[in-house]
């Protein structure tokens, strides 16, 4: 019954937030963007507002949170009651506070990792597509070999060897993820490189730098941006999974994945508190996916 109830409440909230966000977007959007927002689907409006909420919480975490990030405040596993609205965890730290700081830590680390993997992957991918020849061959075969090992397994292997700290976590996940970005960036760039305008620019005698900057990048930005959203989801889920397995972000840093792990025993008593951080992860991923889906749909719709 409570499951059914929460599903109904969830759907109601979804529509409410979606409608309100759409109305706000239309009211406050700059004039030239208004047509874009007019037929934005509810899912995308919902996604945009959730992302905005997370960003605000992440930035202003210390001001919003009622207590300190690692502060031990008393008894463990307190029920939901004032002043601990969501109870306390197994060390007696305030759950709500740690959820709020989690937005900063988990999302921040995932974002930094994605940005790093994206920078490296797309740079190498475009370079390989444009240069062709042995450079392309070697890079692509190397990436193929890495991609033949499942991502999580490769990450686990690398984490065993390099040990688990936040820095190695970021580097390992970024390296593993960069192979996927490389693949996409290379295929996008290859689609552009075969165009006649690139041939024309080459025959004109343009240098490599100008080809990338003026001829390829402007045409590759749209697919790469959508991919950034997808890669973020993937990285975010990977880091959360590793933290949940005890191999990612370490206590006392507040992090959603490890919060689920630490408090998982409560589930067996029917307490849903450990699902809150898991739900926080799910909600952000859903939101990003909704927005990406909308963008991809728009991009494919405009082509017709």
């Amino acid at each position: 019954m409570p499951i059914l109830f929460s599903i109904v409440v969830g759907i109601a909230l979804f529509f409410m937030i979606g409608f309100v966000a759409r109305a706000l977007l239309q009211a406050f959007a700059p004039a030239h963007l208004k047509p874009t927002f007019r037929d934005t689907p509810l899912t995308a409006c919902f996604g945009l507002s959730v992302i905005l909420l997370y960003v605000v919480v992440a930035i202003f975490a210390p001001m919003i949170a009622p207590f300190g990030e690692g502060e031990v405040l008393g008894a463990q596993f307190l029920p939901w009651a004032s002043p601990h609205y969501l109870g306390t965890d197994k060390l007696g730290r305030d759950m709500l506070t740690r959820l709020i700081y989690g937005a900063r830590n988990t999302v921040g680390i995932a974002f930094a990792t994605t940005a790093l993997s994206f920078f490296v992957g797309s740079f190498l991918g475009i370079w390989a597509a444009l240069a062709g020849g042995w450079l392309d061959q070697w890079l692509s075969r190397f990436v193929d070999a890495l991609m033949a090992i499942p991502a999580l397994i490769l990450s686990l292997l690398l984490l065993t060897i390099f040990g688990t700290s936040v820095l190695t976590l970021i580097l390992v996940i970024a390296a593993v993820d960069a192979t996927r970005v490389y693949r996409l960036a290379r295929s996008v760039a290859q689609g552009i490189v075969v165009m006649d305008y690139i041939e024309a620019a080459r025959l004109r005698g343009e240098g490599m730098w100008r080809l990338v900057r003026r001829e390829i990048l402007p045409n590759a930005v749209a697919p790469l941006v959508a991919e950034f959203g997808l890669r973020f989801c993937f990285v975010f889920l990977s880091i959360s999974a590793l933290s949940f397995l005890g191999l990612g972000i370490k206590p006392p840093t507040a992090d959603w994945g490890s919060m689920v792990r630490e408090n998982a025993t409560l589930i067996t008593f029917g307490d849903i508190t450990p699902l809150l951080p898991a739900g926080a992860i799910a909600l952000l991923t859903v939101a990003v996916n909704f927005v990406v889906d909308w963008q991809l749909h728009r991009a494919s719709g405009l082509k017709e």
Binding site: T43, C233, L237, S240, A241, F244, G257, V260, A264, I267, P274, L275, A278, G279, I281, A282, T285, V286, V288, N289, F290, D293
Partner: peptide
């Protein structure tokens, strides 16, 4: 899309 976005442990719990 929602199911894809859920971490496995969330679904499991």
């Amino acid at each position: 899309l929602t199911a894809i976005s859920f971490p496995e442990f969330f679904v499991a719990y």
